[in-house]
Design a protein around this nucleic acid. Sequence first.
DNA 1: GGGGCAAGTAGAACGCGTTCTCGTCGGACG
DNA 2: CGTCCGACGAGAACGCGTTCTACTTGCCCC
Lengths: 208, 208
Amino acid sequence: MVRVTKVDLSPRPVEAMSPRQLERRESLIAAALALVNEIGVERLQMKQVCERSGVALGTAYRYFSSKDHLLAAAIAEWHRLLLADLVSELRGPRGGLGTTDRVVRFVRHGMRAYQRQPQLARLRVAVAASTDPFASEALQGMARADNAALQAVMAEVPTAASDLVRHIVGHAWQGELTAWVTGRTTLGDARRRLEDVVRLVLTPYDTP
Amino acid sequence: MVRVTKVDLSPRPVEAMSPRQLERRESLIAAALALVNEIGVERLQMKQVCERSGVALGTAYRYFSSKDHLLAAAIAEWHRLLLADLVSELRGPRGGLGTTDRVVRFVRHGMRAYQRQPQLARLRVAVAASTDPFASEALQGMARADNAALQAVMAEVPTAASDLVRHIVGHAWQGELTAWVTGRTTLGDARRRLEDVVRLVLTPYDTP
DNA sequence: GGGGCAAGTAGAACGCGTTCTCGTCGGACG
DNA sequence: CGTCCGACGAGAACGCGTTCTACTTGCCCC
């Protein structure tokens, strides 16, 4: 008797999961984030994540197509929380701040968050180049959230023009983060340069 | 009798190699580049590189600290050749071209080169996030060459201002390349956006 | 309640990057 | 010319991501 069944093709979409499954999924992501903060992404192994979250190794691969996919989902989730923080933080001292200053503050605080948890910066950089389609999808979602947050912070700039500006800022952020965690620049230089980029591309639109 | 000797700490610097060794090193890089073009970086294995270049596996690791290091050296070499091509190509039709148009042409031709050898684009992206210090060093050299080439192409812009601009273009290039090879955007969109970035950050300096 | 099946568990197996072992070679130095 | 020692070749060994196997559990439908 010949079995032709192919199983385990690809992870079930999040929206089609039962509550129990969503719970397991979250527990995997939480364990991954915690372990990355404790020991760093390069020493993290799937077996540990599974042990800590109480999920069998084979099952983890039913939820995430690869280690990259799990890590991408984890950093995307964290980054989304960070963006929400940054945006709401800027709602407070918004009075008297021009667009440029607001965006500079946005990226400065963002960089500081990564500085406080450098392992997450390494995680973001390590995962950015993944070719796993599921990981890539998670990262695309992260990029979209990034764009939306920037859009919210620089509401004065017309959308048509701001689209390019947002991409520039996004790329510069990712690039400087990469240069920092791979030791090609210092954190201070990275932060300074990123802020300079923001100032350069935004001052034309500033109308104080 | 106890041996305490630790060997193989790190690869011998290129400038301290004998001619025979430089030859082996080059042959490893050449084999890696050829194989990446043939089968792609994700299917490339160290064993194949060693077989094709006639170097033993252990010996390869005496020249390069890791697969990442070898691949970084390979893409850096190729990218340097590309830059030389791009710069010399712009020496021809330089008459009548403003700085912006020159740089736009520069990145357009650069993107086209990666389009012709998409496996090398994947290679560049895959290796960009490496944390191996030796790979990182090779990439830093590549980034410097990139900067120098851009500097040559936009000679009219004062150095102080052009430094930031060059970083912006470099980051946007890397970012769009990444978005393309990971399937988050199309090649056409990536090329267009990169050229738009160049135009946005350079037109203020254009003095026709 | 019972039968059937997708989903879960535990852990062995496999592939490839990296390291280790050990025998051989080649070239500098007496 | 002989000797010594670091570099090389061949391939086994090891670690971890990923997949596979065999068994068990939970859930839907009759």
